[in-house]
Design a binder for these strands. Structure first.
Length: 654
RNA sequence: GCUGAAAUAGCUCAGUCGGUAGAGCACUUCACUCGUAAUGAAGGGGUCGUGGGUUCGAGUCCCAUUUUCAGCUCCA
């Protein structure tokens, strides 16, 4: 039996051996920190017997898989601690996740004091140094075993496994848990962990099922790494748009206005206005879009045709009662049918297509009350929503154009590297959820796949994420807490034209159904503002800054000159203010820096006499004296090109 | 919607056993007229989220409600 190791070396063994024994053979020191083994590309338990030639790499706690194993074992230690401290608790499920691990229990809510108590117990278990021993039972025996232990959730989990399978368990010094592994060899391998929080979670994520209590924790190889991680999360709060955005006065919320209805304040509104004007001009002038302005509400009749009345009524704000009132209205949750009627208002020739409609569109969705969050989950939001009505032969080219536009927008904002592109496909095993023929689905998905490849966009594919009428590309971004949100979506729709009886007249004079692309170029503006706030920590690129330059006279004596300088900048379209207060220059600089204004212009006697300005920027610090003309030309160019300048790494005192 | 936590000055927070509401920053005024990250002094500012209840007396205890946060589910 030949074993090929990661470094390319080959070892030969006469008999079958476990990965652990091989690890021991290679290096005793390595085996001590080893967690699991990657055997022929698959992560397996260290005890896995290797019976034939294999490629083997022993994963240590330093590997990505290794740390997952540490965390996984840590979740078992947590489960044991819970059983020791709260014997009545029932065990549900406890995996490792990107940020650590969690375990769900049936128990009363855990307080912070409970978590501290559990941490202490876990430390004890780790110190006791239990070996983790794997054993298996036939399914029927496994069910009986967990029934006797009084663990109904475990029984349910086993019942979902195939009839004839062998169920694996891990025993850590008497505490036994159902688990596929892999695990550490010994609880002593856990060097640094912390229970971070607890919350409610539904059994199997189903809100109709039992409510469990989830305990979150994290684990690392070294104490320093854990401390670094905890410090990072402490620091993340300073980037959180929901905190920073309020501090910087981008937006606020008011009790009596309501949940999910943030108020954009002058600074936030200015940024959104800047984005909006950019997108609208870009779409209209360079990408051939036609602007529409359609009603924010409509009679229920419209939503009955679109299908929203039957499928999305819960998510809409409805006014009136169908039994009592002659007319019932609802605020719109999307713009599609409104723009379809714009198309339908006149008869179209094949020469008129593609019709690219776009609207800076405010939408209303009645989200569940617990869903609202800052600017990212709201009940009223504005998107650059467009619908392209195209001939089938134009579909690929137009879809490509939508993707290229979205990519251009992301690149301009400097965030293209932070997003993931997802090809959202239908689920062939769940045909009822989707309309249309399987061949059509496969064909359109192939088209989109080819377009993505042609544009050299890295993407992944996900089944069951498509819209009911067609596949789509979703462009997702993570917020500072690692939670993913869709920023942009481009949807391929070969079916809804039928529902709305849309057509065009082709060369032969026949009526033909067009295809439709539903797309956004910048998605939701509120969400984009939140995203940029977190990405840039409030230090927006100059072209987006609500205040681009602040002029700081050294004393009141130079106010007149300061205002003259500011007026000249204003004439050139620069957003500039003057701080005329009788404060020391150091104080004004500090305040301007904390306000994250990109440029400060300091003027005093020297500048006034020589007709110059002194510049200090977020990018280079003190830039010295300059001609006003030069400064204006430079900053105007920076704004025009939407340049993202590199921030100076400076000690920030707060 | 569900589970838990929270709400005190514009902001960050303190407020003990139920006994007259506190600090720092910010704001206003005055003095200083200043050269690259905090000048000094004085002053104003609160129905303690809202509505009930218990009590001689409630920021503090109880109930309801609104909003915010964390998480579940859902979603742009």
């Amino acid at each position: 039996m030949k074993i090929t190791l990661k470094d390319g070396s080959v070892k030969e063994y006469a008999q079958a051996m476990s990965a652990y024994d091989i690890a021991l053979d290679i290096s005793e020191g390595l085996a001590r920190v080893a967690c699991a083994a990657e055997i022929n590309g698959e992560v397996k338990d260290l005890r896995t017997m290797i019976t034939e030639d294999a490629e083997l790499s022993i994963l240590t706690a330093n590997d990505a898989e290794g740390i997952r194993t540490v965390r996984h074992t840590c979740s078992h230690v947590l489960a044991e601690a819970v059983k020791r401290v709260f014997p009545d608790a029932k065990l549900a499920i406890g995996p490792s996740i990107d940020t650590g691990f969690y375990y769900d229990f049936e128990h009363a809510p855990f307080s912070r004091e409970d978590l501290d108590k559990l941490e202490a117990e876990m430390k004890k278990i780790i110190k006791e140094g239990h070996k983790l021993e794997k054993f298996t039972l036939p399914r029927a025996e496994a069910i009986k075993f967990m029934e006797e232990k009084g663990e109904p959730y475990k029984v349910e989990l086993i019942e979902d496994l195939p009839e004839d399978s062998e169920i694996s368990f891990y025993d850590q010094g008497g505490f036994v848990d159902l688990c596929a592994g892999p695990h550490l060899m010994n609880t002593k391998g856990i060097k640094a962990f912390k229970l971070t929080s607890s919350s409610m979670a539904y059994w199997r994520g189903d809100s109709n099922k039992a409510q469990l209590q989830r305990i979150y924790g994290t684990a690392f190889n070294k104490k320093e790494e854990l401390e670094e991680y905890l410090a990072y999360w402490e620091n993340v709060k300073n980037r959180d748009h929901n905190k920073l955005g309020r501090e910087m006065e981008l937006f606020t919320t008011v009790d009596v206005i309501g949940q999910g209805l943030p108020l954009l304040m002058p600074k936030g509104a200015k940024i959104i206005q800047t984005l909006q004007r950019w997108i609208e001009d870009l779409e209209d002038n360079e990408w051939g879009y036609m602007r529409t302005k359609t009603p924010l509400m409509a009679k229920s009749d419209l939503y009955k045709i679109s299908g929203h009345w039957d499928h999305y009524k819960e998510g809409m704000f409805v006014f009136g009662d169908e039994e009592k009132d002659k007319e019932v209205f609802a605020l719109r949750p999307m713009t599609c049918p409104f723009q379809y009627y714009v198309y339908k208002a006149s008869q179209k020739s094949y020469r008129d297509l593609p019709c690219r409609y776009s609207e800076t569109s405010t939408l209303f969705r009645n989200e569940d009350s617990g869903e609202m969050h800052g600017l990212t989950r709201v009940r009223q939001f504005t998107i650059s929503e467009g619908h392209l009505i195209v001939r089938p032969d134009q579909m690929v080219e137009e879809f490509k154009g939508c993707l290229a536009l979205a990519k251009y927008c992301l690149e301009t904002l400097g965030v293209n590297d932070d997003v993931t592109y997802r090809l959202s496909k239908w689920d062939p095993n769940n045909k009822e959820k989707y309309i249309g023929e399987p061949e059509v689905w496969e064909e359109t998905q192939n088209h989109i796949r080819n377009i993505l490849k042609e544009l050299e966009i890295p993407f992944y594919e996900a089944e069951g994420e498509a819209a009911f009428y067609g596949p789509k590309v979703d462009i997702n971004a993570k917020n500072v807490y690692g939670k993913e949100d869709t920023m942009i979506t481009i949807q391929w729709d070969a079916l809804l034209a039928e529902q709305f009886d849309m057509y065009y007249i082709d060369q032969n004079g026949d009526k033909v159904r067009p295809y439709i692309i539903h797309r956004t170029s910048m998605g939701c503006y509120e969400r984009t503002l939140a995203w940029l706030t977190e990405k840039y920590e409030g230090k927006f690129p100059t072209w987006l800054c609500p205040e681009q330059v602040r002029v700081l006279p050294i004393s009141e004596k130079y106010s007149e000159y300061a205002n003259k300088v500011a007026a000249e900048m204003k004439k050139n379209g620069i957003r500039v203010t003057v701080d005329e207060r009788s404060e020391k220059i150091g104080y004004k600089i500090r305040e301007t820096r904390l306000a994250k204004v990109p440029y400060m212009v300091v003027v005093g006697q020297k500048e006034e006499e020589e007709n110059l300005i002194s510049v200090r920027s977020r990018f280079l610090g003190d830039e010295g004296q300059k001609e006003l003309k030069t400064f204006i030309a430079d900053i105007c160019e920076e704004i025009r090109t939407k340049e993202i300048r590199k921030e100076q790494v400076a000690e920030e005192t707060k």
